[in-house]
Computed example of a mutant assay.
Amino acid sequence: MKKLETTTKIALGSLLRVYRKGFGYSKLTLIGNNDYYSAGLAAEDFFHSVREGDTVEAYLWVEGVASYEFAITVIGKIGIGPRILFFSHTDRITRSVERKCLTAQVDIPIRFFSFDPGNMHKGISTEEIIYHNGRVILLTDREATIKSDEEISGARFLKGHIRIDSDVIELVGMLDVIDDSKKMYNLLFSGMHDKERDRILDYIFSHYRE
């Protein structure tokens, strides 16, 4: 994708993170885009929080390219069936090569084990797996900070599960030590399915309601 210079060029299916003062954060999935307007599928609570003429701040991350921030104005709504918002276009866009993640302070139990991917071709028997318990204390859709009940500083990778409401989310990724003395570690997610990432985003957005 070339440098985004106008919102008319945002691809269908793109996920926008949107912010409205007085509400907080939500997400929109772009389902329509032409020279005159863009259309986004909105969550019900966000849909009802905005009116025609309202301006919201939007954020778009294009994987491997850049992040973009811009303001868009609501020009129409359809509330029969799927909740759809229509927005005017803008060419006032700020570009950054860094991804900006929302970070939620949480307290979610996690049960996990660590492993060395270099030995995965040999297989891991259930007898060799040593489970640990801990808590996720910071969460984004890309990484998590874990406070473990035991030191795991020798580990390179981690696999575990957390529960968000009724959903079980698998977390797998590379492990970095934050503070061994406090048994705090950072987990950078790898190979996460979009459905699970979206569920984490929904949960994080719920922490940013105003």
Rank of each mutant, 00 (worst) to 15 (best):
R209Y: 09
E210I: 15
V62C: 03
P109Q: 04
L60S: 06
S181D: 10
F46R: 01
K27P: 05
A43F: 03
R142L: 14
T29W: 09
I137F: 15
E44G: 03
G64E: 01
S148L: 11
L139P: 01
V136Q: 12
S49A: 12
F113L: 04
R111W: 01
A11W: 01
L28V: 08
A11V: 10
I169A: 02
V74L: 03
R92T: 11
Y19P: 05
K182A: 14
D180G: 10
I84N: 04
L12I: 13
L201Q: 12
D165F: 14
W61V: 06
K122P: 02
K159C: 08
L175P: 00
H89A: 00
R156C: 05
K159F: 08
G118P: 09
E44S: 12
I178L: 11
I10K: 03
V18M: 05
M184S: 10
T145D: 15
I164K: 00
T90P: 02
Y36S: 15
K27T: 13
E57A: 01
L28M: 09
A42V: 07
I10W: 02
Y208C: 00
N33H: 04
T73H: 01
C101N: 15
G79P: 07
I178S: 08
D176G: 08
D91A: 03
S153T: 09
S26N: 12
M120T: 09
R142T: 13
L12M: 09
L28I: 08
L85Q: 00
F87T: 04
R99T: 01
M174E: 09
E151T: 11
F157L: 06
A144E: 10
H161G: 02
G118D: 10
